[in-house]
Design a protein around this nucleic acid. Sequence first.
DNA 1: CCTTAAATAGACAACATTGTCAATCGCGCA
DNA 2: TGCGCGATTGACAATGTTGTCTATTTAAGG
Lengths: 350, 350
Amino acid sequence: MSDGESLDTQVRRSTITDVARLADVSIKTVSRVVRQEPNVSEETRKAVRAAIEQLNYRPTISARSTTGSRSFMLGLVFDNPNPSYTFDLLIGAQQAVKEQGYQLVFEPLERNGKGLGAAITQLVVQGNLDGVIVPPPLCDDPSVLGALSKLGRPFARIAPSRELTLGFGVSMDDGAAAAAMTRHLIELGHRRIGFIKGRAGTATTENRLRGYREALAAAGIPFDEALVQQGDFQMRSGLVCADALLALADMPTAIFASNDDMAAGALIAVQRRGLHVPGDVSVAGFDDAATAAAMWPPLTTIRQPVAEMAATAARKVIEYQRDPEATLDSVQLDYELVVRESTGAAPQRR
Amino acid sequence: MSDGESLDTQVRRSTITDVARLADVSIKTVSRVVRQEPNVSEETRKAVRAAIEQLNYRPTISARSTTGSRSFMLGLVFDNPNPSYTFDLLIGAQQAVKEQGYQLVFEPLERNGKGLGAAITQLVVQGNLDGVIVPPPLCDDPSVLGALSKLGRPFARIAPSRELTLGFGVSMDDGAAAAAMTRHLIELGHRRIGFIKGRAGTATTENRLRGYREALAAAGIPFDEALVQQGDFQMRSGLVCADALLALADMPTAIFASNDDMAAGALIAVQRRGLHVPGDVSVAGFDDAATAAAMWPPLTTIRQPVAEMAATAARKVIEYQRDPEATLDSVQLDYELVVRESTGAAPQRR
DNA sequence: CCTTAAATAGACAACATTGTCAATCGCGCA
DNA sequence: TGCGCGATTGACAATGTTGTCTATTTAAGG
């Protein structure tokens, strides 16, 4: 009839009181150990930790939030048409948040909905969130930034492109990554490399183009305006732009699209003309979207550490919230060049 | 110097006490109104509601969870390789949960990790979750089902394919949807319709094939074994299977793939042969993945109401949790035939 | 008018945790 | 010995909400 063992621990949740009783200390002392506060003797600390271990105790977030100012909850708002990008953000943030004993709440917002700032204020105040993570394009929206600044809680911005001093920025060096991809193509022997730009007017678009130009310059290849087409990040624009490039008398042997969706369009355009990838034309993308590996042929691209950026953002917000003295310099994470089968040596004769 | 107005309400969160004071009732009465409990006069109810409105009051989830057995939190666990599917689930569940004043926590799990059941038990017990939503493939995993049954909390399964009496099921009629797509092709004049099956051994695969066969039979078209290929839901298999179909002496004029990824492969296979879609061959998919509309040409497919299924699951779990007497019959939601440009009239002469 | 029951409303405890403040202990020093 | 001080520990209040129980009001029936 002894049921206090395995079954019970499975079904009932142990509380700080249970731990205190087992370790024969007060609940406050347990709290001190859990929160890693000072003024607990090493001996007591050990005993408490053993009890925690034995009972598999984890503090209850809701109870924690009732007292004090912290709520142990972080918010992630987004309005990004790309589900796999946003999903990666969620995964990354969730993992980091869990490590720290926090919880994540997320909320889709409409960028063009009015009252965007008010919506964020509402979310943060009602949810009593300790901090917020804001990916693009919301992280560059003036009303969002205004609301966040007023709230006086830490917030992190993923890949911000303006007002870089506001909040804590986590980004990737778009320019360097684009340059690396361009170098990769040059090393394969390509000299005429077409470039498909992203949506006009975004910092991302500018940075990637700059990287492309810098790598060309470094290799002593003259920049040719005719090889640059204006896309808009959608697949269709990739198809149209690639068609234009392939129609040139002096056709490029490689096409570098500013994102994977447009690269997918380029792949179709090339193959519709009966040309082979990468035998006749190499194609490269940017993002390493979930679809990149599934394309035909699998796409060479730049992996953005999306999940890692979100995780870093979450950790930094928590860190700041623990110790507001901490310096929160913005951070740049590394990209990764993912070489698959859509790029290869330039054709021998042209 | 009067600061009690707009600014203050923005930055401070109003509590049940504020509302009670303003409406000149006890906090318990406010609680009754909010929880829609009986025994409050219509007059009082109105006054309280007005106060709630004025102060923009929303109950604090953490405070709620401390008392009583409810935690007002639902869990969503998943292990699905398809980010956009999972993302849709998250969006749908989050929206439903928010409507009901609940919160959603999600957790990626490794299907083949050992201790899957233990992991779920841990998650639910530690998080004190009121219920769980389990999409495929986890919803058919025996250890997951075992753990959930033991926990004694309501759980909903998205598109389950076995043990249908366990938990609350939310699904879509795969067979009817596949039949509808097949009818669509028949109405366009197609008589030889190739079919690419999904991964062997899954209920989904069987159901979709059955729908295809039934629609053929209903139209008096004989079933031809040669027109059915075995795929595995991956794009590459779609490409290979379509190649096989197109190599037939009596080539099909339409190809129906059991999901969009394989349809993408089929699109490539057709166009690589210099054939036009849909002029020479129509191609249809299943799922309405995010990529479907971005393919070339945009893919005719079946829209699965993924977000809606998750929302229904969430609502049902909450409903049950509010009133355990409620009957929770499983539910089937409607699919939608999305006709885009990859299907068209069968070629006149073959 | 009195009794009884139902409807309505409030007082107070309970929840799991943290913050504040007080109590105790050990130790060095006069 | 007595005193002061820092380190350690605990008692208790507070957090925002719901459950339980009790008190008051209203309505109905004699």
